[in-house]
């Protein structure tokens, strides 16, 4: 197929694709505990997606990834992030209403280095998810739209 790379690249891409996605989602989900966060994890996941068109060609990638769906998911992420900022509008914009509340993501954290409590940090995990969704779909939109634009240029 046109735009496909060698069998070595395709085999390595098949193996590393899942690992990259898992690592990216780990960085997003543990953004409030470990280095990284929504933006970094989203960029990792987007680079994993970008492996598809690099290794298998633009046509194969376009079959699995829909740029219009990506663009709408990016808007959903943006609006979710804005809505989470408005959650604390009673006190101040971006006030963390869920932190230390005892409910969802409301566990108190001991001071100093600790092994990390996943159920902590209030609205920060939700913001990480929103920004992660936004960044991964946004960067993927850019890659796909550029690919489609390059494909049109080649045909004419």
């Amino acid at each position: 197929m046109r735009g496909e790379m060698s069998v070595i690249v395709r085999t390595i891409a098949r193996i590393t694709y899942a690992l990259i996605l898992v690592f990216g989602f780990y960085v997003i989900l543990h953004g409030h505990l470990t280095p990284g966060g929504g933006f970094q994890g989203g960029a990792v996941v987007a680079s994993g997606f970008a492996l598809l068109p690099v290794a298998f060609g633009a046509a194969a990638a376009k079959r699995y990834l829909n740029p219009s769906l990506m663009r709408h998911l990016e808007e959903v992420g943006s609006l979710a992030f804005l809505a989470l900022g408005f959650l604390g509008i009673g006190i101040s914009f971006f006030y963390n209403v869920l932190a230390n509340s005892g409910s969802l993501f409301g566990a108190a954290v001991p001071f100093g280095p600790n092994s990390g409590i996943l159920n902590s940090a209030g609205t920060l995990p939700f913001m990480n998810w929103a920004v992660g969704l936004k960044v991964m779909t946004g960067l993927m939109t850019i890659v796909l739209v550029l690919l489609i634009g390059a494909g049109k240029e080649g045909k004419d």
Partner: peptide
């Protein structure tokens, strides 16, 4: 850590 509950 006390105010936001985030280790990071």
């Amino acid at each position: 850590q006390a105010e936001t509950g985030a280790n990071n």
